[in-house]
Design a protein around this nucleic acid. Structure first.
Lengths: 149, 149
DNA sequence: CCGAGTTTAATGCGTGTGCAACTATTGTAA
DNA sequence: TTACAATAGTTGCACACGCATTAAACTCGG
């Protein structure tokens, strides 16, 4: 293949972006909108659910969201009552962000829906192959972020 | 696994988004910035390069970019000299967007760099497995967009 | 213990985004 | 032909984003 042409169906970033946008759109407009949440907010909540309370800077690393954007987003999430932001007792410049009961309740309802969209996307793909895809995506992320994580 | 918990490394939308953002960031700040291009603009140019001149509405479908956003983006791309926007002669409400010579020249230089980032991401993944990943991503997109395409 | 340097978070600012509303053109059916 | 609906594109508006800067707290060598 000539290096000066790109076939879309063979160009990985295009394929990844397309699936990512499609997944976000479906789930975002359907389920998340009912909670006043954006997809980025959802990602923050998922990371908090999976990894527990986090400093904002770590949340940023895990969600690939800019620190300034995240600061304002956490303010909105707190105003909605899904998280609390409390100054760390040990280190007074750090802020710990943690889920509230309301946040956990919303996640309990949203996670099954998220899984259904995941299954919808993966329909017709053999479990072993799906696992291989996930492993490959993890490897790609590690390749692209040598220093981090 | 309990349905009310999500393991990040097993949650497909998270993995896809993470790789997508990492790819866009690397390429966007490094190579695209020198041309005054954003990643979204790059995606538009790539689609034009792969599929030829397009109506704006079709560009939107292929790039997952909102029509109004695209309208303004094409204005900027035209001002930068990368594309031309001309009213279709057959159908006077349609607009055809096409690459200029300058646009094609920029693509000739950028595509090899894009491929290098793609290879960087896919390093250590066997060609057959990479092909399987691409097929899976295409299948996922089809699953998520039943009507379109 | 002091002060330079680092880390973490918040904010000012210009800009891009998506939704909704609007204009213009084309398609369709009585 | 005329009226109504559908399609393509643009624009107004409010808002979220990212960068650069600032503020505050911590670290550590001298």
């Amino acid at each position: 293949m000539r290096p000066s042409r790109l076939t879309l169906d063979d160009y990985l970033p295009y394929l990844v972006n397309r699936v990512g946008v499609a997944l976000a759109l479906e789930f975002g407009k359907d389920a998340l909108a009912r909670y006043g949440l954006s997809i980025e907010m959802w990602r923050v909540l998922v990371v908090l659910s999976a990894n527990g309370g986090q400093r904002q800077v770590d949340l940023g690393g895990l969600t690939s969201i800019d620190a300034s954007t995240l600061s304002r987003m956490v303010t909105r999430l707190a105003r909605l009552g899904f998280v609390v932001r409390r100054r760390s007792t040990a280190n007074n410049r750090e802020v710990e962000v943690a889920l509230t009961g309301k946040g956990r309740a919303a996640l309990r309802r949203l996670i099954p829906i998220a899984r259904r969209y995941e299954q919808l996307a993966a329909a017709g793909i053999a479990p072993a192959e799906l696992a291989a895809v996930k492993r490959a995506l993890c490897a790609m992320y590690r390749n692209l972020t040598p220093a981090a994580d």
